[in-house]
Amino acid sequence: MTTNPQRATALVTGASSGIGAVYADRLARRGHPLVLVARDAERLNALAARLRAETGVSAEVLVADLTRPDALDRVAARLAEPDVGLLVNNAGMALSDTLAESTPEQVARLLALNVGAPTRLAAVAARAFALRGGGEIVNIGSVLALATERFEPAYAATKAFVLTLSQGLAATEAARGIYVQAVLPGATRTEIWARSGKDIDAFPPEMVMEVDDMVDAALAGFDARETVTIPALPDAGQWQAYEAARLAMGPNLSLRDPAARYRAAAAA
């Protein structure tokens, strides 16, 4: 069976609010049946009811805390079912303090949600989608993957992981008919700021994107089949130059001999 990605069921994590809720809305209006995943049952049910009424699509609610292995197993099992052809890996969190001041439990939760869950679900999706001829994986990262010194480092590192994972999957899974997109938003007006004890209004207004605008831009990148979409970046050539410089280093990243500058320093 080959899934039609235009009408495949879309599984969206972190769907109860913010980016995930807007993705659910936009995908429903494109005709995708939905599986909505988050911890907040009341919000999920309200969103599902509204989307069923407004679009006529089916909207299934799957209440799950993706930091819990048993809940992650349930979501992975639903993702592997034959009707699902689109995964939006959106669920995420930020620390409310610095890495140095956070507890081990807080850091473990961050890593479980921002790294463990999207990795597990992307792996399940890639395996399942390949068996039925193709599918699509959207991983929500952050521009902090490219500007790691500007924010709390553990959160930025998780988003750098998402970018690397996405680029690697895009390269390895394209031959199996799977499209992978990494979306790197800048500061976006969502609840993640309040949850982590930060004030989005402390940013200059020109730096903060509204969530509807962000998702609409990301979907334009999705339709254009971009591997990396940076909704706020005015000049796509800057990203292309960045990627070209990275790839140009490739032949020289693993060589028998240390670079001459290090040999000279050692001999001094």
Rank of each mutant, 00 (worst) to 15 (best):
N4S: 10
R7G: 00
L11P: 02
L11K: 01
T13L: 04
S16N: 07
S17I: 09
S17M: 14
S17T: 14
S17C: 11
V22K: 01
A24Y: 05
R26E: 14
A28Y: 06
A28F: 07
H32D: 04
P33E: 07
L36Q: 05
V37S: 02
D40P: 01
A41H: 13
A41L: 11
L47C: 07
A49W: 13
R52G: 02
A53C: 13
A53G: 14
G56K: 08
V57W: 10
V57S: 08
E60D: 13
L62W: 09
L62C: 12
V63L: 05
R68H: 11
A71M: 13
R74L: 13
V75S: 05
V75E: 09
E81M: 09
P82M: 04
V84Y: 02
V84D: 03
G85Y: 00
G85N: 00
N89D: 12
A94H: 07
L99W: 10
E105N: 02
A112C: 06
L113H: 00
P118Q: 04
R120D: 04
L121P: 03
R127Q: 15
R132H: 12
R132S: 09
I137N: 04
N139S: 05
I140R: 00
G141R: 00
L144A: 04
A147Y: 12
T148Q: 11
F151A: 05
F151T: 09
A160Y: 13
L163A: 07
L163M: 10
Q167I: 12
Q167F: 08
A170R: 12
A175G: 15
A175S: 15
A175E: 15
Q181K: 08
P185G: 04
G186C: 05
T188D: 05
R189D: 11
E206H: 15
V211L: 02
D212T: 10
M214S: 09
L219V: 01
R225N: 01
R225H: 09
V228R: 00
T229Q: 08
L233K: 02
G237H: 08
G237I: 08
L247T: 13
P251C: 08
S254G: 11
R256V: 15
R256S: 15
P258G: 07
P258Q: 11
Y262G: 08
R263M: 14
A265V: 12
A268D: 15
